[in-house]
Amino acid sequence: MGLFGNKKSMQDRQADAMQKAEKIVQGKGLTGKMTKAFMGSEFTNAMQGAMASANQAQQAAQLRAAGVPTETATVVQVQDTGQTINDNPNVVLLLDLGGRQVTITTLVSRLEIPRTGDNVLVVREPQTGTMLYAGLAPRA
């Protein structure tokens, strides 16, 4: 039991923090409106893109855990967006997926940044068909 009898799990605290951050970058509530007023819409737009990437990374992990199959793609190009979340870069990946090129903007681990020529895993979101980055492919 916590100090005030309300102990949340780490996962619940992270989910709460993500919801608060999304409200701020959407300009909702006093903090969101103040952020947009003082930092400008360019900043909040950039943060919305970074939040979307973070959500996609979380969704890809959930899909993999649920057993959704992955596909292997080859990195053609990596472009840094200049944004980071918890020191992890948000990048634009141009991938070769079975002869067709796919672009994914995603958050990647700073310890496992994909490079041109690397094989990576992607997972297809079942409802929308959107391709999500699922990490570096295991090396043989």
Rank of each mutant, 00 (worst) to 15 (best):
Q127I: 01
L111W: 03
S53N: 10
P69H: 14
G135T: 10
G29S: 08
N119C: 08
M131R: 11
R124L: 09
V78K: 13
S109L: 12
T72I: 15
Q58W: 04
T74I: 13
G32V: 13
F4A: 13
V102I: 12
N55P: 10
I24S: 07
T116S: 11
Q83N: 01
R139M: 11
L136Q: 09
I113Y: 03
A21R: 14
K33F: 02
L93W: 11
G29T: 01
V76H: 08
R100V: 04
L3W: 02
T44Q: 06
K7A: 15
A50M: 10
G135F: 14
A61V: 02
A61Y: 09
Q83W: 12
D16T: 08
S41C: 00
K33G: 06
T72Q: 04
Q83P: 06
L3P: 06
V120C: 08
P138W: 01
G99R: 00
G99A: 03
Q101S: 07
G135E: 12
V120F: 03
N55L: 13
Q79M: 12
L136M: 12
M18E: 04
V91G: 14
V68P: 08
V122A: 03
D16M: 14
A17H: 14
N6I: 13
R124Y: 01
T81Y: 01
L107E: 11
A61N: 05
G29V: 01
R100Y: 00
L3M: 11
P114K: 02
R64K: 15
G27A: 07
L63V: 07
V68M: 06
P138G: 07
M1C: 06
R64V: 14
E71A: 12
A73H: 02
K20E: 15
L121T: 09
L132D: 03
N90K: 01
V108H: 02
S109P: 10
T106E: 08
Q19P: 10
V123T: 05
A46V: 07
L63I: 07
D12W: 10
K36C: 05
